[in-house]
Amino acid sequence: MPKVVDHDARRLELVKVTWRVIARAGIDGATMREIADHAGFANGALKPYFASKGELLAASFQHVFNLTNERTERSTAGLSGLAALRTFCHEVLPLDEDRILEARIVIPFWQTALTDPDKEQQYAQDMEEWRDQLLGYLAQARRAGEVTTTVPDVQITRHLLSMTMGAQIMAALYQAEYSPDQQIAALDAYLDMLQG
């Protein structure tokens, strides 16, 4: 009887192997051959799951985005307004080794999205989802009197997305100056300014 393969589970396994290879060898060292070796596959055996390294990177990015969404959903459950906004940002910021590794996956994806319309669209859709969540938390915070600045919510959201995305680059490249405590202090300083 032929072995039944769970293709979704196998794809997820390959994404996780890709993370480990990137953490050890960097994005350039994460060749299809290297990933196949670490997964225990023959080189060509990845093709049924991912036709190219670009496709595998896109799946890895989407997995990072999904993991972040799962974290934010869990951690913001029962929260609203400014507390939910702060907690959401904490889950996006690279505050531990796992999230720094996630940043190392996301950064090369951004590079490929500059010249790949499909990846650019994927990124834009993901950011729209986050923007809508942030706008919802800001609306709650305004109703509760927690945010009183006259700066429009759409501008605040743009700033928060820029801050959290920029923190991923800084933490991956310059951890000494962008420690978790420093990231949280910078976020809190900004959120404090929303009350005036």
Rank of each mutant, 00 (worst) to 15 (best):
F41Q: 04
F41T: 02
F41I: 07
A42S: 14
A42N: 12
A42R: 14
A42P: 04
G44D: 12
L46A: 09
L46F: 03
L46N: 05
Y49V: 02
Y49K: 06
F50A: 03
K53F: 04
K53D: 05
G54T: 05
G54E: 10
E55Q: 13
L56F: 01
A59R: 00
F61V: 00
Q62D: 11
Q62N: 11
Q62R: 13
H63I: 00
H63Y: 12
F65K: 06
F65S: 04
F65M: 08
L67Y: 03
L67D: 08
L67G: 00
L67I: 02
L67K: 09
T68C: 09
N69Y: 06
N69L: 13
R71I: 02
E73M: 09
E73A: 15
S75Q: 15
S75A: 15
A77Y: 05
A77T: 11
L79C: 07
L79Q: 13
S80V: 06
S80E: 14
G81R: 04
G81C: 10
G81E: 06
L82Q: 03
L82T: 01
L82S: 05
A83V: 01
A83D: 15
A84F: 03
A84D: 04
L85K: 01
F88Y: 14
C89P: 08
C89G: 03
H90Q: 13
E91V: 00
E91P: 00
E91H: 03
E91T: 04
L93D: 07
L93R: 04
P94G: 03
P94V: 03
L95C: 06
D96Q: 03
E97W: 01
E97N: 04
E97Y: 05
R99D: 02
I100D: 03
L101G: 10
L101I: 02
E102N: 07
E102I: 02
A103T: 04
I105C: 09
I105V: 15
V106T: 13
P108D: 09
F109K: 00
W110M: 11
T112G: 00
T112I: 13
A113Y: 07
A113L: 11
A113P: 01
L114H: 11
P117L: 07
P117R: 11
K119F: 02
E120V: 01
E120H: 15
Q121T: 13
Q122T: 15
Y123D: 05
Q125A: 11
Q125H: 10
D126P: 02
E128S: 13
E128L: 14
E128K: 12
E128R: 15
E129Q: 12
E129F: 11
W130C: 07
W130P: 00
W130Y: 11
Q133P: 00
Q133G: 03
Q133N: 13
L134W: 08
L135Q: 15
G136V: 07
A141H: 10
R142D: 06
R142C: 02
R142L: 01
R143E: 15
R143A: 15
A144F: 09
A144G: 02
A144N: 10
G145Y: 05
G145H: 09
G145P: 05
V147H: 08
T148Y: 05
T149I: 08
T149Q: 11
V151N: 12
P152G: 08
P152T: 08
D153F: 08
D153G: 15
D153N: 14
D153K: 07
V154G: 06
V154R: 15
Q155W: 09
I156E: 11
I156G: 08
T157E: 14
R158E: 13
R158M: 07
H159E: 10
L160S: 02
